[in-house]
Design a protein around this nucleic acid. Structure first.
Lengths: 110, 110
DNA sequence: TTTGTTGATTGCAATATTACGATTAATTAT
DNA sequence: ATAATTAATCGTAATATTGCAATCAACAAA
């Protein structure tokens, strides 16, 4: 196909797109919202909550964990997941700076 | 494969993921940043700016336009693109509400 | 130990995305 | 009319993502 290499873009652009990609699937949005709603660790009721199979949820969790947005602690047979608030804040700062670009541009056009 | 249907998720979750998907590629992030930086219409120098072929850029522009984040006005042989600030603000409100979830959750865990 | 429970991993099949050469469409210049 | 310019579209190849059945690994309960 011809993949656009990350070298073509700035670190900031690559970082923004990586975070955005994590939110680019409703299942992951749903997982994150659930973790916030519960506001504590969730031990595996995500499969019941969302209507997807266990391996699928596990895969989505893995991606979110890899990005650092969530933490997973083993607790007996189950694993407890929760938001990594520190990393979430850092991500939010990056994304907010991107979304707030309009504040600096006053021009009208077209 | 088995696509997760949009009916499985809330309208909000689907909307967030659609916007996020638009930002999920560094080329589109780059296009949007450039449009903000210029702060006026851009008549097709995006291909020179970003290192991708003209059909590729055109395709990315189409997606952003379909989502309503940018506008394109035909002007002679060229087309002028700029941010649709009204829609950008609406998108920002949706995304910000999602990103700011952490403000409402005070709990410590794990 | 055996059984049950929970969640990760593997191995695929289905689908979506990305990139670009070639072409087309629309407009302008000569 | 012809040529030049600009950007959209088509067709297709390469790659990435998603979903899940099957399996595996770790631990707990009997």
């Amino acid at each position: 196909m011809g993949l656009a290499k990350t070298e073509m873009f700035t670190d900031e652009q690559n970082e923004i797109s990586l975070f955005a990609k994590a939110f680019g699937h409703p299942a992951r949005v749903s997982i994150l919202q659930h973790l916030f709603k519960i506001d504590s660790c969730v031990c595996g009721d995500l499969v019941a909550e969302i209507g997807l199979a266990q391996p699928t949820i596990s895969q989505h969790l893995k991606e979110l964990k890899l990005l650092g947005l969530i933490k997973g602690n083993v607790e007996g047979t189950s694993v407890c997941y929760c938001i990594d608030k520190e990393n979430w804040t850092a991500m939010k700062n990056v994304m907010t700076a991107f979304l707030d670009q309009d504040l600096k541009s006053s021009g009208e056009c077209c």
